[in-house]
Simulated assay, not measured.
Amino acid sequence: MDKIISCCGVICSECPYYPTDCKGCPTIKGQVFWLEYTGENICGIYDCCVNSKKLEHCGKCEKLPCDRFNGSDPTKTPAENENDLINQLHQLHSMK
């Protein structure tokens, strides 16, 4: 199976929520299931990158990483969240 990668650098196809709870941002256009917990209609990173800036992914943005990457998953430890961010940034830099 090919990797499905979101504009933020998350490898959707490696996520435990894929494909049951989430089909991946390229398919669902940033309307991820966890938005019900944040009250948003669309992921802020996706909205900025794809809808506003018309970029393929954040790796093409001169402001990477911006404040939109400061969020964290409350179900993970600070170390796990930091590792996730490092992995996302590595993925994005490899896609430039």
Rank of each mutant, 00 (worst) to 15 (best):
M1R: 14
C66V: 04
G30S: 10
H90I: 05
V50A: 07
P65I: 07
E80R: 00
S52M: 15
E56I: 12
T77V: 11
D47P: 00
T20Q: 15
C43M: 04
K23N: 03
I11S: 06
N70L: 14
K63R: 10
P19W: 09
M95E: 08
P65M: 12
D21N: 13
P65K: 13
M1V: 15
H57E: 09
D84K: 04
N83I: 01
E82P: 03
C22G: 07
W34D: 03
Y18T: 08
A79R: 02
L85P: 03
L64D: 08
T38E: 03
C15P: 06
L89K: 11
K76C: 08
D47M: 13
C43I: 02
C66W: 02
N83V: 00
T38N: 00
C43T: 05
K53P: 00
Y37H: 14
N70A: 12
Y17N: 09
K60A: 02
L92V: 03
L35E: 00
N70R: 08
D67M: 09
T38F: 04
C7E: 09
D84I: 01
Q91Y: 11
R68W: 02
I86C: 07
F69M: 11
A79E: 15
K23E: 07
T75H: 14
N41E: 14
C15T: 13
L35Q: 04
K60P: 00
C15W: 09
G39V: 06
I5G: 00
K60F: 03
K29D: 12
P26V: 15
Q31P: 01
S13K: 01
C66R: 03
G71C: 05
G24T: 10
M1H: 12
T75P: 08
R68E: 02
E62W: 07
Y46L: 10
K3M: 12
H57W: 05
C8E: 10
P16D: 09
Y46H: 10
C43S: 07
V10I: 15
S72I: 07
C12V: 03
E40Y: 14
C61G: 08
S13Y: 05
G24I: 14
F33D: 05
E62D: 13
T75V: 08
H93V: 14
K60R: 15
H93F: 15
Q88E: 11
G9P: 00
I45L: 13
V50G: 01
K96W: 05
D84M: 08
C7F: 08
F33V: 06
G59V: 00
I42H: 01
K53L: 15
I11F: 13
T38R: 00
E80L: 04
